Amino acid sequence: MSRVSGKTARAHPVDSASRRVRGKVPTMHDVAREARVHQTTVSLALRNHPRLPLATRQRIQKVAARLGYRPDPMLAAFNFHRLASHPVKGTPAIAFILDADARRCFSQRAGHPVVIEGARQAAKERGYGLEPFVLDSEEIGPRRLDQILLARGIAGVVVSTFETKTTRLELDWPRCCAVKIESRHLWPPLDVITNDQHQVTRLGLRRMLDLGYRRVGLVSTREAERRLGDAFRTGFLVEQASLPESARVPPLLLDDSDRKHPERLLSQWLEKQRIDAVVSNLNDVARFIEATGRRIPMDLAFASLDLTPETPNLAGVVQNHALVGRRAVEQVIALLHAHERGLPEVPSVTFVPGFWRDGSSAPPAEAFE
């Protein structure tokens, strides 16, 4: 029997459309009553907390979706600060996946450890843990990883760096809220968070030209270009398009076989193209240039397109790896809160720009004239 207060016991759920007609916004209390559970259980289910069985979480999430329940953004903001100050036990986890062949990218000299640290910090601030998984055909393959994620109740997934020889990652994607970091060559077509290597390269070339260098060349690898959608090379060619044809230099793209000892190939390219400055996403190129008998910066200027704390004297562009990791986790958590699982209908790409830093490897060209 209906009452003036509007608190009516019903045998059937009421659809969200009829609630909105009467102007009543569904609350967590409504979801709890409809699902016949406590509000705390609803809160845990909507946060996909592993404390609850997967079937219970999914049942409550379906009830919330049917009622048209949306979390209060002000309350969510309050909870964010509460969790940041007082972490709860049984922290839910987000998986951070990379393949075994890409582990070299996580050496201490690369920017990738900064990516995972940024991701870990963002997860911690929001009450989540970050759990890395390395895919290996012998130890943990996709099928085994699926079993682990399901058993641990992990639905949030960040897919990180994969070598280009790995072209597909088969997981139970309809169950996951997932994004990729770089690895745009890799199936499935998820939303991507990446440094803006196109902008980074254009900025690096532009600054070298502003410093007075006339013949600036790019050194990259075919592997990096395939993994990043030709971002370095296309950025370089686009920025070069505004130069006179006589000032344009063809990029040097190294194969894996050239990567460890490219000195001969590099020396031939430098001499043939009469290059006075090099930009590269490979910081080792500075060492290889000096191995050809050329001095930096007296004979040739060099600017890195991926400066790290280990290269304090180099000029170049700093890529914001920590922010890439942070944005990836933030997006996964947003998907978890919105219960948006599976592959996106139209995948998006979020680009994080870099910034220039002066250094002794690229002084003004006039200093050596």
Rank of each mutant, 00 (worst) to 15 (best):
V332N: 09
L203R: 01
H337I: 11
C177A: 15
L203C: 00
R152V: 11
P53F: 00
R59V: 02
S43G: 13
H38I: 07
P364D: 06
E239D: 04
L67N: 08
T308N: 09
T311C: 02
T292S: 01
E225Q: 10
F133G: 12
V329L: 06
E170G: 05
M298W: 11
L305P: 01
F368R: 01
V157N: 11
R175P: 07
E366G: 08
V324F: 11
L218N: 03
P244S: 11
R264S: 10
L135H: 04
Q273D: 06
A77G: 08
D146M: 10
Q331M: 09
R57I: 14
Y213E: 00
E182A: 15
L52C: 06
R287H: 14
L149N: 09
A362C: 03
R175I: 03
A301I: 02
K62E: 15
N281E: 03
Q331Y: 04
H261W: 03
P344V: 12
H337N: 15
L54K: 04
G212I: 07
Y213A: 01
V14L: 09
V249F: 03
R274A: 13
A247Q: 02
A102D: 08
R214G: 08
G129H: 07
R294S: 05
D146Y: 02
R207P: 01
R82K: 05
L265W: 00
K272C: 01
G316H: 01
Q108R: 09
E223M: 15
D30G: 07
R259A: 13
R36P: 02
Q268S: 08
